[in-house]
């Protein structure tokens, strides 16, 4: 069965007053895919993400989420789209005045009429899923950064959204926690079939989870590579892409050549 496109970006031009950051970008995300957006600093990754989740309106072009254009739709459609997506923000964005349980139960209470007992059970399930059982009554300020990330994830997937967006999920996490988060992403993707769109530049995590990537570039303001990271690593025509995946400085080749010369 051919998978359908759940996110479609068509000819997107994005920018802040007068300054264009992304110029004529088009790509699709397939249903059930783990899709990673990457690129060097300042290339517009976060701007792209903000357009995908409807926080910013494109200067021109379309962003279509599950059949509806998020950039140009009425209030009710917009609400329906928001119901289908969950976002894990870089700093978790947990509400500081609420306990973890209250944070997670907020969307459940807002969008369903389930009895209190079931809501509590669901909250437990969600927190269990991210290994935070026993922390229901903790405030966000009382737990560590990695735990906040996981609690944020629990809140983002409280309603089992079709698409989960991640803004730099492993930023500020230690390698072990980071791998655990990757595994969590993989298992959620496998068990629930959730589509994941991830903005990151954490190399190990890219190779670990990505089905497909796009790489943005600051100079061309567009996509310079698209595909399987394992293939692109060695076979991309673009030197910057190869350097990115192999973790080499842009002038690595020049330096190594000059070193060779000196040795001779």
């Amino acid at each position: 069965m051919k998978k359908r496109n759940i996110v479609q970006v068509k000819d997107l031009i994005a920018g802040y007053d007068g300054e264009i950051i992304l110029d004529h970008i088009s790509f699709d995300v397939l249903e059930g895919e783990i899709f990673i957006i990457l690129g060097g600093s300042g290339c517009g990754k976060s701007t792209l993400l903000k357009h995908l989740i409807g926080l910013m309106k494109p200067l021109s072009g379309q962003v279509i989420i599950d059949g509806n254009d998020i950039s140009n739709c009425d209030e009710i459609t917009f609400k329906n789209i928001l119901r289908k997506i969950g976002v894990l923000y870089q700093s978790s964005a947990l509400f500081g005045s609420m306990t973890l349980a209250e944070n997670v139960s907020l969307p459940i209470q807002e969008y369903t009429d389930l009895p209190k007992k079931l809501v509590d059970t669901l909250v437990k399930i969600k927190l269990n899923l991210v290994n935070l059982n026993g922390y229901e009554n903790h405030l966000p300020s009382e737990i560590s950064g990695g735990m906040k990330k996981r609690a944020g994830l629990a809140r983002a997937m409280a309603l089992n959204p079709k698409i989960l967006f991640f803004d730099e999920p492993s930023a500020g996490l230690d390698p072990v926690t980071s791998v655990e988060l990757d595994n969590l992403i993989l298992s959620l993707n496998k068990n629930l079939g959730t589509t994941m769109v991830i903005v990151t530049h954490e190399l190990p995590s890219i190779f670990n989870v990505a089905h497909r990537i796009i790489m943005l570039d600051r100079q061309t303001k567009g996509i310079i590579a698209e595909g399987d990271p394992n293939y692109l690593k060695d076979h991309s025509k673009n030197r910057f892409v190869r350097n990115f995946f192999n973790r080499q400085s842009q002038n690595y080749e020049r330096i190594s050549e000059s070193l060779k010369k000196n040795r001779n």
Binding site: K117, T121, V123, K124, I125, N128, E136, N137, N191
Partner: peptide, 21 residues
């Protein structure tokens, strides 16, 4: 199977809600 698994998992067995402080 996955439904049975979900129903079997520990949290569901323990449906008592957590105690609010």
């Amino acid at each position: 199977e996955e439904v049975l698994f979900m129903l079997d998992s520990e949290t569901l067995a323990d449906t008592t809600s957590f105690i609010k402080i």
